[in-house]
Amino acid sequence: MNCRLALVALCLVLGPVPGTAEQIGDAEQGATIFASQCKACHQIGEGAKNRVGPQLNRIFGRRAGSVPEFNYSKSMERMGSDGLTWTLTTLDAYIANPKALVSGTRMNYRGLPDPAERAALLAFLREWSDRPQDIPESEPTALKTDPDLSPEILAIKGDPDYGEYLASECQTCHQADGSDQGIPSITGWPAEDFVVAMHAYKQKLRPHPVMQMMAGRLNEEEIAALAAYFATLE
């Protein structure tokens, strides 16, 4: 009986589908925006070719000014060689106001001021870039939940079962028995050291990309729960 009541209570707290990532934007609306704002100069989709502007297939993850056989402005070429790569963030800034990012761009466009419309357009453009299933390192397709703000996560703080579930993600690489060949042991690590190290990864002070990503999706309570869990493992 207790068990059943707990389950009902948990359903009420968590709702049926907690932990949902936010979509970039409304891709259907984005298609409409593309047709009215971009299509006169840019092609996208199957068989897209360079016109007044470069074709936009696979723009996500691409270096600025790098579509073969397209005649870019000097300004765009310079930004490309300086390292400008098209991501959600850089494309959003460029579409908001092209000259903010590339002063001498030939893209004669005033900019799209509404953030929701830009998000919709970006969601549409993303559909024509690499699929993460095939190219896992390609740009994300949804927006990360902020672990420090997620109400579903904050509601389950201090739960030892949750600590154990979180730890299962660590144990794909860090062995519970404390072996440390190639990957350091975190078993029996003092909780304080654990917390400090995870925060250093979260702030990207420590350089390891896998750990930056893992720590980046944990909030303070989750880090504390993990520290407590691994400190007591023998």
Binding site: T20, A21, E22, P136, P140, K144, P209, M213, G216
Partner: peptide, 16 residues
Amino acid sequence: GASYEPTEEKIASVES
């Protein structure tokens, strides 16, 4: 590498 979160539509890549 990448981390993923569920959405109504699919398991989505959120960082890579």
